[in-house]
Amino acid sequence: MDSLVVLVLCLSCLLLLSLWRQSSGRGKLPPGPTPLPVIGNILQIGIKDISKSLTNLSKVYGPVFTLYFGLKPIVVLHGYEAVKEALIDLGEEFSGRGIFPLAERANRGFGIVFSNGKKWKEIRRFSLMTLRNFGMGKRSIEDRVQEEARCLVEELRKTKASPCDPTFILGCAPCNVICSIIFHKRFDYKDQQFLNLMEKLNENIKILSSPWIQICNNFSPIIDYFPGTHNKLLKNVAFMKSYILEKVKEHQESMDMNNPQDFIDCFLMKMEKEKHNQPSEFTIESLENTAVDLFGAGTETTSTTLRYALLLLLKHPEVTAKVQEEIERVIGRNRSPCMQDRSHMPYTDAVVHEVQRYIDLLPTSLPHAVTCDIKFRNYLIPKGTTILISLTSVLHDNKEFPNPEMFDPHHFLDEGGNFKKSKYFMPFSAGKRICVGEALAGMELFLFLTSILQNFNLKSLVDPKNLDTTPVVNGFASVPPFYQLCFIPV
């Protein structure tokens, strides 16, 4: 009986604490739906499609509103004006990374994606500088992407125009580009180590996009005490870190300090320079996690976009025909596509942009946080508050993009057929937390897609009208449904 009384008292205290925290903070924060004790607004949000729920709530509470995930307040920004004001106009104040408990377990605050403060700034600055020195957006990395595009075309030829699921092959190409940047090595598509790495990356994007992960991140005790797919994700990350550590040891034994070959060499050189400046942010643990982040951000996002792009091109054969006509006119058949071609191919450029806009790969991006107490639109948001960005509300804005739910390359073309930029184009987020590999991803999408369409016609196994382009999961990332196609050599 005594234990029951204690339990009831504990629960009562928890409920009172929950109510007090919510009521004391709500006077400062933007308005929002009334949260339930302990669980907050979790029942009012469709976990399978958070973005749709945010759109519905914005119609009631406006472009800036507050939700509670458990006891934790989260300020939501919906629509271009609110997102721009926060991420661009007040970029420094909104540059923090929001709480992501599962990532905390995986990387302990290291790396480039989930770190904060001085650690994040130094690692991000170093990573950007190193990638630029190796030619991100310049010639040397373009050579690597072109080489991988040629290998991709050869792998597709091996399908002999038979029906195939493109998931694996389209994942190999961007993964190999990242391998060449980090390890100075590309792998054969049949290499077992490479296959294991690909498998872990593919599993992780599916797990991260599941409703279960949303629950884990908002009720963090689940991570330590409950079984579930989150444990598989943590094991996959541990596998990748151990693999990278092996490569780091190989580099330490063979590195030429006067001739760095890749990202690992550059990081080890930085560690050597910083060894007298303790404590340094440049450690082996930081290198492991930064490399894992580059793999995660640079492989599955690009391969998922490529997979979605081919599905949309199957669905819209008239678009595919126009792209192939432009390829034939500008590039021809006797040389590989290059980035200089893009400025002469406005329709193809528009298609690449429209694919990214339409699929809305990361509907709410990753959570941000404010780095200080900030007054925002007459609300006071306390330091450390998590900020949720609705990228969907920007990419699918119906004023900027008429009929935003329709796939239409003319969203990025003017009346004369010239490519038209849009400030609403934010597939990689915006501001200080914009994806480090934005330029690389854009290069890969253009070169891989043009190389495929230069060499193959795409054949659907069903009537294009019957192809479903609805994402199968739409949590962290929008993942396309399973499909097969035939690559018919031109």
Rank of each mutant, 00 (worst) to 15 (best):
K420N: 07
N474G: 09
R307V: 03
Q340Y: 09
G62Q: 02
K190I: 04
F226Y: 06
V177S: 00
V462A: 08
K52F: 07
L234G: 07
K28C: 12
E272A: 12
K232T: 12
L36T: 07
Q484H: 05
E199I: 08
G96T: 06
F100E: 14
Q278V: 11
E246C: 06
C338W: 06
N403T: 09
L67A: 07
N403P: 03
V75K: 00
N258T: 12
R21C: 14
V83C: 13
T304P: 02
I182F: 12
R307P: 00
I381R: 00
N107K: 02
S286L: 10
P30H: 02
E438V: 10
R307I: 02
F448L: 02
T159M: 09
E438G: 15
L485K: 00
T55I: 13
T283N: 11
K383V: 05
G70M: 03
L128K: 09
S53I: 08
I223A: 15
F476R: 05
V436E: 08
H344A: 14
A103Y: 15
G137R: 07
I374F: 11
E285S: 07
P464V: 10
E147L: 08
F168H: 13
N218C: 15
E81N: 10
E285I: 03
K84D: 06
I387G: 02
S343D: 11
R342K: 15
R21G: 12
I389F: 15
D165A: 00
F295G: 01
V8Y: 12
T299S: 07
N116G: 09
R186M: 01
K28Q: 13
I244C: 05
K119D: 15
I215W: 14
L67F: 12
I141L: 14
F168A: 06
E325F: 10
M426P: 01
E400L: 09
C338S: 14
G96C: 10
F100I: 15
K28H: 12
D468I: 09
L294Y: 03
G27I: 11
R329T: 10
F194P: 01
Q324D: 05
S140M: 10
A149D: 00
K247C: 07
I50E: 04
E92D: 14
M406A: 15
L17I: 13
T450G: 06
L314C: 06
R377W: 06
I223K: 09
G96E: 14
R125H: 09
I434Q: 15
L131I: 09
C164V: 13
Q146H: 04
I434L: 14
P35G: 12
S51N: 15
G431K: 00
K315Y: 01
A149N: 00
V177W: 02
D165E: 04
G437P: 00
V490S: 11
N418D: 08
K375R: 14
K48V: 07
Y308D: 00
T66P: 02
M136Q: 11
E92V: 11
V319W: 09
P346R: 05
P346S: 07
S220F: 14
P471T: 04
Q22V: 14
W212C: 07
F134S: 12
P427R: 02
P260H: 07
F263D: 00
I244G: 02
I123Q: 15
T66G: 02
I452P: 00
T159C: 04
K232R: 11
K241Q: 03
D463R: 04
F482Q: 15
L361T: 08
K206P: 01
L268I: 07
H230R: 13
S254R: 13
T385Q: 06
L453R: 01
D414A: 04
L445P: 01
G70C: 07
M136H: 10
R21M: 13
S393A: 07
G96V: 07
M269L: 14
A238T: 10
P402N: 13
E354Y: 01
L268S: 04
I359N: 06
G25Y: 11
G40H: 03
S3M: 13
I50D: 06
I359C: 09
F446Y: 09
T159F: 08
N258Y: 08
S390N: 15
E415V: 09
N217G: 14
R97A: 06
P337M: 04
F425T: 06
K121G: 10
P337G: 06
K72R: 12
T392C: 08
F448V: 01
F476S: 07
S53H: 12
G98C: 11
V8T: 10
V177F: 00
S451A: 14
R105S: 12
L128T: 14
F183Y: 03
E93T: 08
E122R: 08
A350Q: 00
P480A: 06
Y189R: 01
D191A: 04
T302D: 00
I284V: 10
G40P: 03
G46I: 04
V8P: 14
I74V: 15
L361P: 02
N236C: 02
P409E: 03
L7R: 10
I205M: 11
Q484K: 13
A161L: 04
K383I: 04
N398E: 15
C266Q: 10
D397F: 05
I359D: 02
K200Y: 05
L17T: 13
R26E: 15
E300R: 08
L268F: 05
P471G: 07
T348G: 02
V5H: 13
I387W: 03
K185L: 02
S209K: 15
F295L: 15
V436R: 02
N455S: 13
S140G: 09
S127F: 06
V323L: 12
L14H: 09
D373V: 02
F412Y: 05
E147S: 05
S365R: 01
F219H: 06
P409F: 01
L395Q: 11
L361S: 03
I488V: 15
F110L: 14
L453E: 00
K383M: 06
S3L: 13
P402G: 10
I141Q: 01
K190A: 12
C435A: 00
S209L: 09
F282M: 05
P404G: 14
L201F: 06
L128H: 12
S23T: 13
M1I: 00
E354T: 00
K315S: 04
I222A: 08
R329S: 12
D463C: 06
C13F: 13
F476Y: 06
Y308L: 02
N236A: 03
F263I: 06
T229N: 14
G137P: 09
I331S: 05
S286T: 10
A149P: 00
D463Y: 03
R186G: 01
Q454E: 03
V8F: 14
E328V: 14
F110K: 11
S429K: 04
L9R: 10
P481S: 03
P402C: 10
F100P: 15
Y243T: 08
S3R: 12
D408P: 00
L131A: 07
S3P: 12
G298C: 07
I39T: 05
N277I: 10
S18K: 08
V6T: 13
G96Q: 11
G79M: 02
F295D: 00
E92L: 08
L67M: 09
I50V: 13
S220C: 15
V479W: 07
E272D: 10
T320Y: 04
L306V: 04
G437M: 05
A477I: 10
S140L: 09
G27L: 13
L445D: 03
K383N: 05
Q454F: 03
G62N: 02
D143I: 09
K160D: 12
N202S: 14
K119S: 15
F376Y: 14
K273T: 12
I223L: 14
S422M: 10
G137M: 10
T450D: 01
Y61D: 00
E250Q: 09
L67E: 00
Q252Y: 10
Q261N: 10
L170T: 03
T392Y: 08
G384Y: 04
R433I: 00
K28T: 13
V76M: 04
F487V: 00
M271T: 07
V323Y: 04
I284D: 05
G111V: 02
S365M: 12
I169R: 01
D408G: 01
L366F: 03
L395M: 12
P221N: 12
F412L: 02
L268V: 05
V38I: 13
I359E: 06
S254P: 04
Y68V: 04
L287H: 00
A238V: 08
T450M: 05
P404S: 10
L36A: 09
F456V: 00
F183N: 03
